[in-house]
Structures are given as C-alpha cells and as structure tokens.
C-alpha cells in the first residue's frame, strides 16, 4: 500500500477539499506551524490563493470572521497554529460559534473548522504548549477531531470540513513527519468511530494524538515482557465512541489512559469517568491515568520531558495494572 508522510497526507486532503468545494476558504497560517515543509503550503497557495486570507494577528477577530462567513455559506478552515492561541479567540469559539445553532433553535449552521497544534513540542514553554481540547470538550456545541496517523489526518479533515457544525481539529507537530499507509482514494473517516491501533488481550490502553504513537512503541516493548496491550484511539472526542472502548475493556478488564492534556478535568479524566460509570463491573483493577502533570509547562528539556505522558510513565502504568 502507498505510504505518505503525515504532512503529505494532510495536504493531499486540503488539496482535494479545496478542489472539490469552492466554499472552502483558508484563514490564517500555513497548517504546518514551524515545520520545514513550507513548500507544500506554497503549492496550495499557487492553486487557491484567491480563497486564502492572511489576516492581522487578531485571533479573536479572524475566528469571528470565519464563524460569520460560515453562517453565510462558506466553509472556512482557520489555522490558529499554536493551540494556546485559541485562548485569544475564546469568546468567538466558545460563546458564539458553539452556541449559534442551538441558540437559534436549529436555524443557523456554523460549518467552520478551527485547526490548531496542541501539546508538548520541545521548548514551547508554558504559552506555546497548550492542549485546549479538554476545555473545549467542556463546551457543548463543538465537534472535536484529533488524528494520530497519516491516514486519520486525511480522513478526519475531510469529515471536519463536510460537517455542518463548528469543529476543532486538534493536530500535533510531532506527528508531521510520521510515515504511514494512506490508500489512494481513501474514504473520509466518519466522526465517532474509534480505531484499534493495535490489538491485544491484556490491557486496554486508550490514547489520542501523538500519544497514540508513544503508546504503540510502549506496546512493542511490553509485548517482549509478555504483556499484550490493545491501543485504542477514539479519533474524535465529540462525538465519542464509548462502545468500542467498552468492548475492548470487556476483553482486557484493565484500562490505562494516556493523554497530553493536563490531568485535572483532562481528556483522560473524562474517559475514565465514562468507563467507570458504564463499565465498572468489567474492571479487574482501578483505571490508571497518564496525563500531563498539573503544572504550567516548563521550558527546560528535562523538565518538559518529566511532566508529559512519556513512554516510561506509560509502561509503568501498564505494568502496574497487570501486577
């Protein structure tokens, strides 16, 4: 099967989306953060420059502009670049875009995509390493997609743009160079369908975004110790596929959740609560979380490495759950 780098799959999706639908406009950014692959965005700009807008540094303003444009029939994709920058646009994302459809009694649709790079990136320090998806999951009215592989980024981006709802597209710079299979003419991936990234019978290891890749490596090491880990990637937080997770838990009876959002009220916290509420009787041992520690992200490399859901912390948690 054909193999692509993650960034190539993402830009193949953007190219196909823009070719297929004249209503799609790109607002701000290059969808690559500081990655060296700038040429792929330039190729896109040459083809669709008249549907791209390079606004001033006004996250609140241009997220509102994109939301209003979506209300009036366009399908804008906004690049906030660094995920923490969405805090600058909070009123428009959380208080206008998320509420418009419900508040209007189902009359006003807001098909906008807010794209951002979340998480620990290496030297991002406290203001450029945010993972706002947990806070946004606490905000009804937003769909949240969070890919972890080249195939998923392409398929989920297509579904995000096709959605009539405001969608947060949570990306990670540490995934951009990852290579993986992406079939030609692959279908869009529907929201609300988790993916079993690795089958296993001993522990259900749930993860999102770049942490899925960390978990896959951890699983290989654990397999050598005779522990077979099943890695489950929800792929979207809203809607959330609890059924696939529960059927995995039914098999393994053990759960570890690894995720880069901060621990308190984080993504792992919500997933743990849902499993405990509906699948407690299936569990043989307590649910374990491997989240980013509840501190502002420090700059220095060993400090940053210490707080994240590292391979060693994940391995320790899995070992503890089978002990």
């Amino acid at each position: 099967m054909r193999e692509l780098a993650y960034y190539e799959a993402k830009f193949e999706a953007l190219d196909e989306i823009m070719a297929a639908d004249q209503r799609v406009h790109l607002i701000n950014g290059t969808f690559l953060s500081l990655s060296p692959h700038r040429h792929v965005f330039q190729n896109l700009a040459k083809k669709y420059g008249d549907r791209m807008m390079s606004p001033p540094i006004s996250e609140l303003g241009f997220c509102g502009l994109a939301t209003g444009a979506a209300m009036a029939g366009l399908r804008p994709i906004v690049d906030l670049s660094t995920g923490s920058f969405i805090y600058e646009a909070w009123p428009q994302v959380a208080n206008e875009a998320a509420n418009a459809y419900s508040m209007s009694g189902g009359q006003t649709r807001v098909p906008v995509v807010f794209h951002l790079f979340h998480g620990l990136r290496g030297g991002g320090a406290a203001q450029h390493s945010g993972s706002p998806q947990a806070m946004l999951w606490n905000c009804p009215g937003l769909e949240i997609a969070i890919p972890s592989s080249p195939r998923d980024v392409k398929g989920l981006l297509k579904t995000a743009v096709a959605s009539d709802n405001p969608t947060i597209f949570v990306d990670h710079v540490r995934l951009l160079d990852l290579r993986g299979e992406v079939p030609e003419n692959d279908k869009p991936i529907p929201f609300g369908v988790a993916d079993i990234k690795r089958a296993g019978s001993d522990v259900t290891l749930i993860a999102t975004s770049h942490t899925v890749q960390v978990c896959l490596k951890a699983a290989e090491k654990l397999a050598k110790e005779g522990i077979e880990v099943e890695v489950v990637d929800p792929r979207t937080l809203v809607p959330f596929d609890l059924a696939t997770i529960l059927s995995s838990v039914e098999k393994t009876r053990r759960v570890v959740i690894a995720d880069e959002t901060h621990q308190s009220c984080g993504v792992a916290a919500e997933i743990a609560a849902r499993i405990a509420e509906t699948g407690f009787d299936k569990l043989k041992t307590r649910i374990r979380r491997v989240s980013t520690l509840d501190v502002p992200v420090p700059y220095s490399p060993p400090l940053e490495a210490h707080i994240g859901p590292s391979e060693s912390r994940i391995i320790d948690a899995v070992r503890a759950s089978v002990a």
Binding site: M53, L60, G61, F62, C63, G64, L65, A66, T67, G68, A69, A70, M71, A72, G73, L74, P91, Q92, N95, E96, A100, M103, S104, Q107, T108
Partner: peptide
Amino acid sequence: FLHSSGVVAGIIPLSTGTAYAS
C-alpha cells in the same frame, strides 16, 4: 438575522464574516 449575541461586541467580528462571505 442569523445570530444575536448577548456579549456586547460578539457580533462585530461575525459581521465581518458575513461581509467576507458576500
């Protein structure tokens, strides 16, 4: 009237959006 906001300036960026779409 697509959206009325109770946040006093909430609609001002939105109005640039419908204008951008038009």
